[in-house]
């Protein structure tokens, strides 16, 4: 049975989506490409760097704006569609544009985990506090995990045969 794990965050891309979980001893990354799930584990013992940064999603903003403009132009070319455009399309596009502007204003927060040979990234749309909480949690867990062992801990002892 799989270890109990907590969902930390996710990232959606054109090529697929990524879910990042935290288990007792590792950060697990499930990269879903189509219908195959590829799982990578970054052991907390092997975490080298954690980073937190914010970036406005300009790519998404311009893509949505271009698509909306194209649809409006194509549909609006025909006079018969003017009513449909005014009553339905324009309000929907206005809402979408407003959401897009808000995403740019608030930005997307990314938390990145660097292991020895792998990397995991989580995106938080308009959830800066959640991103900060996840970052602090990971820093705390990695620090605890990588703390030097106590001097009194003994190594493996040979088994005695009676």
């Amino acid at each position: 049975m799989a270890d109990r794990r907590t969902l930390l965050g996710r990232e959606f891309r054109l090529a697929g989506r990524t879910y990042v979980f935290l288990t007792a001893d590792a950060v697990e990354v499930d990269d879903i490409d189509g219908f195959d799930v590829v799982r990578t584990r970054v052991l907390l013992d092997d975490v080298m760097q954690l980073s937190l940064h914010k970036r406005p999603p300009w790519g998404l903003f311009w893509t949505v704006l271009l698509v909306m403009t194209f649809i409006l132009l194509v549909v609006g070319l025909f006079p018969a569609n003017r009513g449909f455009v005014l009553r339905f399309l324009l309000p929907v596009f206005a809402l979408s544009l407003a959401a897009n502007v808000m995403r740019v204003v608030f930005g997307v927060h990314y938390v990145t985990v660097f292991g020895r040979r792998s990397k995991a990234r989580m995106a938080f749309y308009m959830r800066g506090r959640k991103a900060r909480a996840v970052f602090d949690l990971l820093v705390e867990r990695v620090t605890q995990r990588q703390a030097p062992p106590s001097e009194s801990s003994a190594g493996d002892q040979p088994l005695a045969v009676s």
Binding site: D45, D46, V47, M48, Q49, L50, S51, L52, H53, R55, F135, V139, V142, T143, Q146, P148, G155, D156, P158, L159, A160, V161
Partner: peptide, 27 residues
């Protein structure tokens, strides 16, 4: 031009404990 907050770690190098030679009375 990207500003980011970073936390760096220095994990212990991966080593395996040396095996002990078998002694009388040990398996």
């Amino acid at each position: 031009e990207q500003r980011y907050e970073v936390a760096l770690f220095h994990p212990r190098p991966m080593t395996s404990a040396p095996a002990q030679a078998v002694a009388p009375g040990s398996a």
